[in-house]
């Protein structure tokens, strides 16, 4: 990847992380850990990969993204706001009464392609969009982001079987493998491992990558595009809470909001990261 573009993406990702913290802090609730772990992926997709137009969010042949791990809505909202789908200020009223931004993704929000949040369901909807694209010979791709804990839901594997059987090669699933779910480490709660072998057995093309390295993300999504007759899953090794030191790899930050002191510290860290990148 071109060094300038890479730096621009890193700057954008940092701004998106700041929006996540802003949103969750003002909401006094939400899920910062898993939002921060997918911030780079969403940055890459919306700022370097997907064919979307913030001025025309319902564009017929746009690429679609279903945030199957819908509780990490702050990451999607911050990305969409930074992309220009709605004002950045909306992030401050996330989860408030009368606000545009609901606790989990809602299809009526500009740029949100599917309501989601009840785990395991988004991937099925993504399959439906991909199938529809196939039927109509539409040029769009469908991306679905799943949590590694989420794939404990049985419906994910119903969808996995379906996508492979229907040869949905316009579908790319991303499993955000940050290793943590609410009750602890995924291998301790009810292990979904081995993830790679499971998807391979279900007939998917599997790519493993690093969720926080734009060169590797680019390589992964480029490879995904070359695969025919098979759906692709990108298993991305990620760090829950990535970018905010005290949130990294801490399961306690799965679903809790920072207090004012923690908010200030998080924003200071991200500001420093931003300055270093821009400097």
């Amino acid at each position: 990847m071109d060094a300038t573009i890479k730096k621009q993406l890193e700057i954008q990702a940092c701004k998106i992380r700041m929006g996540i913290i802003e949103g969750v802090y003002n909401a006094k609730s939400g899920h910062p850990g898993g939002s921060l772990s997918i911030a780079d992926t969403l940055t890459y997709l919306y700022f370097a990969k997907m064919n979307v137009d913030p001025k025309n969010p319902d564009m017929e042949d746009r690429d679609r993204l279903v945030l199957s791990k819908g509780h990490t809505a702050p990451a999607l909202y911050s990305t969409l706001a930074n992309k220009g789908f709605f004002a950045l200020d909306e992030l401050k009223s996330l989860r408030h009464i009368g606000a545009l931004l609901q606790g989990h993704p809602c299809i009526h929000i500009p740029g949100v392609d599917m309501s989601s949040g009840s785990l395991g369901q988004g991937i099925s909807a993504a399959c439906g969009m991909a199938l529809s694209g196939k039927i109509s010979n539409a040029p769009y791709k469908v991306y679905a982001i799943l949590g590694d804990g989420e794939i404990e839901e049985g419906q994910v594997w119903e969808a996995a079987m379906f996508a492979a059987h229907k040869e949905l090669d316009n579908l790319v699933a991303i499993v955000d493998n940050n290793g943590l779910q609410i009750d602890g480490a995924i291998e301790d709660v009810c292990s979904p491992y081995p993830i790679k072998e499971k998807f391979e057995a279900f007939g998917w093309h599997v790519i493993e990558t690093d969720a926080h390295d734009f060169d590797k993300l680019e390589a992964a999504f480029d490879e995904a595009e070359k695969i025919a007759k098979q759906p692709v899953v990108i298993i991305q090794k990620s760090v829950k809470g990535k970018g905010v030191s005290f949130m990294e790899n801490q399961v306690s930050w799965h679903g809790s909001a920072p207090n004012t002191e923690q908010y200030n510290q998080a924003m200071e860290e991200l500001n420093n990261t931003l300055k270093a990148l821009e400097g």
Binding site: M114, I123, A125, M129, E158, F162
Partner: peptide, 18 residues
């Protein structure tokens, strides 16, 4: 969709969204 009603409903939803 095979014997997988939950997925079928989700797939139908995704298709309707297009």
């Amino acid at each position: 969709c095979g014997i997988a009603e939950a997925n079928m409903m989700g797939v139908a939803a995704g298709m309707a969204a297009t």
